[in-house]
Amino acid sequence: MNCLWCDEAIIPSITWKTIVPLTEPMYLCPACTKELTVLQGGRCRKCSRMSRKDLCVDCERWQSNWSNGRDPLEWNISVFQYNDWMQEVISRWKYRGDYCLGKAFLPEYQRVFRQHFSFLPSNTAIVPIPLSEERLRERGFNQAELLADCLPRQTDQVLKRIHGEKQSKKTRLERLTGKNPFKVTQTVNNPVVLADDIYTTGTTLRHAASVLKQNGCPKIYALTLVRG
C-alpha cells in the first residue's frame, strides 16, 4: 500500500491487530497522518470551531441575525482543523479532481458520525450539499456525495443548486449576503444530517438548511470534514 498523498510505501508494523484481515487499510503514511489535526477539546458547541467560549462570536451573530433568531441549523460538527497541508490536499482532491484522495478521510469521518450522531433515529436522512449541473460536469464528481455515501444512514439527494460563482472565490461579506442557491426537489419529514467538505462561514449550510426547514424538515444537523 502506498500513501495516497505522497506515494511513499507504507510499511505497517506487524501486531495482532494488523494480522487480522478485517482491519481498515492505512491510506496515509505516518508522516502525512501527522499533518492531519483532528478537532477535539474545547470547541464552539454550534460550529465546532476551536474556542474557549461555549458559543463563538460568529455563532452568536448567526443566532441574532439569521431570520429573526431562528437559526435553521441545529449544530455542525467538523472532523479536521484547516491548515496549509489540508488546503493543498483539498485543492488536489476537489479542484484537480483526484477522486481517490477522498478515501483517506472516510474512516475518521465515519468515526465522528458514530460518536456524535448515533442518537438520531434510523430514518435520519443524509443530504449531501449538491454541486450545480455545470460544476458537476466540470469536475466529474461531487465530493460531498462521496462523504455522504460512506455514512451508515440512507443518502437522499433532495436538493438542487442553481449555478453561480464558486463560494471559495467570494469574500466573506459576499457569502453572507448572497442569494440562496438551493431548491428542494422532494420534501423530507425526518431529521437530516447535511454532509459537506468545508465549513467556512456556514452560509452554504444555512442556505440549504433553511430551504429544508421551509419544506417541513424538523431538525437539521451538519457533519463537515474541515472547519475552515
Binding site: M1, D7, G97, D98, Y99, R137, R139, G140, F141
Partner: peptide, 13 residues
C-alpha cells in the same frame, strides 16, 4: 505505469 498512481472514478457524463 505505477499502479498506486492510478485511481478510478465514477464518470458523471
Amino acid at each position: 505505469q505505477k499502479r498506486s498512481l492510478f485511481g478510478s472514478i465514477p464518470c458523471y457524463s
